[in-house]
Amino acid sequence: MAISIQRTGEVMSAYLSGELDHHTAKEMREEIDSALDLNMPTLLIIDFSEVTFMDSSGIGLVMGRYRKLVKVGAELHITGTSAQIYKVMKLAGIERLARLEKGE
């Protein structure tokens, strides 16, 4: 699992890659949170294009970041979800919290 973070103006993008499960989620979460605290964006985009597997630990990661963003009035977009990831996101009703986009 790897993560790269980019910032353009008030938009912060987190590009995740590899397998996202309970084992890898903690590191992802900590990296995103420390970048959020530093950058204070108004929009966070979490991109899943390079994520090859995700279980409900990924939902925990998304919901935790959503709770953090909503406190400061910032928004969350989820992009690049594969069919499997999209299915897990839909089961959790993530589209009610964030803009949810399918990948190519």
Binding site: A25, R29, S56, S57, I59, M63, G64, L91, A92
Partner: peptide, 11 residues
């Protein structure tokens, strides 16, 4: 706690 979604059995 807060970082688990509580969706394991639902999945």
């Amino acid at each position: 706690g807060g970082e688990r979604a509580g969706l394991g059995f639902a999945v």
